Amino acid sequence: MGAVREALDALSLVDHHCHGTVAADLGRDAFEPLLTEGDAWPGVSPFDSPAGVAVRRHCAPLLDLPRHAPVEQYLARRSELGWREVQRRFLSVSGTDVFCVDTGFAPDRLTTPREVAEAAGGSAYEVVRLESVAESVRAAGIEPDAYADAFRAAALDAVRRPGVVAVKSVAAYRTGFGLDPARPSDAEVTGAARHWTARGGRLDDPVLVRHLLWTAVDLGLPLQLHTGFGDSDIRLHRADPALLTDWLHLTAGTIPVLLLHCWPYQRQAAYLAAVFEQVHLDVGLTLHHVGPARAGAVLAEALEITPFRKLLYSSDAYGVPEFFHLGALAFRQGLAELLQERVDADELSLPDALRIARWAGRDNARRVYGLPDDLPEGG
């Protein structure tokens, strides 16, 4: 094992974007859909995918099973241990001691940020999803001409909760990024709110999404933006972060913008991080879906031109705790292989490689989110 891998294995990670896990024991019918961003297909198991294979290879031993254990054996052992013990094992072994948890999407009962932290023996912070705030405002029956002020007040209340460090938008799902970059006028917002309150449903009006993004700027906290890969609700060509270029010009000098996931647009995201001071990125979600075997290839593309203080680690684990472990494992292995290769080729000094590893795994997130300097550093 090389020196970079040893250092990364000993580094306690900051997972700057993740979710809770389902707080219940899961049978096969409930577990399998959580392995994929796709829909369930009759006769096709999500276990027969790169993510499913990685679970059986890298997660089975943590349940006291052999590598590549059969699916039935794997699921039976999960049930035998119970969801709390399964969660504890995977989160504690991930070597992550700080979690920034998006609490805005919870169709099932998910573990809270506090429960995530307790399972890992670490600490957790909250990320507020602004679309959820807006939809709560509409559901309260607000008049259209009062929507803008009501949303701003509700968003301010949400971000003032103890432990909130960032906000997030899923504009990529709702409208895509091909939006007019300018801040909408009060009249535009009122008109759009009138149409939305009349028809109901989720927030997917382009004017109101623009208003949400500009409200995020006004809030002053880092803004996380889902980009690229997601479930079938997304239109991938509209989730290219390069479409944000004009908006990033207009918001220069305001808040940090964190581009989440990015695949297959990691190169576009890298370009934005290279030319806009406020832009940072990760390739979370992608890593546990491609698995440790391909994580290095994705990270190599993301780091072709990305400044080293701009790459962050995230797992984007959701639903099943296996993804906390797989995300961390893929990140450590992929980044270590990439950096060690450059050290061996004398393209990078070992001290520089170790600094980059620490920045990406921990310190960049601490700086962007203003996390305490005295976070524990043990592995």
Rank of each mutant, 00 (worst) to 15 (best):
A330S: 10
A330C: 02
F331A: 00
R332C: 00
R332I: 01
G334P: 00
G334H: 02
L335F: 05
A336F: 09
A336R: 01
A336P: 02
A336Y: 07
E337T: 13
L338M: 10
Q340M: 04
Q340I: 10
E341I: 10
E341V: 09
R342E: 13
R342H: 15
R342Y: 09
R342N: 13
D344M: 11
D344K: 12
D344F: 09
A345H: 12
A345M: 12
D346R: 15
D346V: 08
E347A: 15
E347V: 11
L348V: 09
S349L: 06
L350V: 03
L350A: 06
L350Y: 11
L350H: 03
L350Q: 11
P351W: 11
D352H: 14
A353C: 07
A353N: 03
A353W: 07
L354H: 10
L354Y: 03
L354K: 08
R355C: 07
W359T: 09
A360M: 08
A360W: 10
A360C: 14
D363W: 14
D363H: 12
N364Y: 06
N364M: 04
A365H: 06
R366F: 08
V368S: 04
Y369H: 10
G370S: 04
G370L: 11
G370T: 00
L371Q: 03
L371R: 03
D373P: 05
D374R: 12
D374P: 08
D374H: 14
D374M: 05
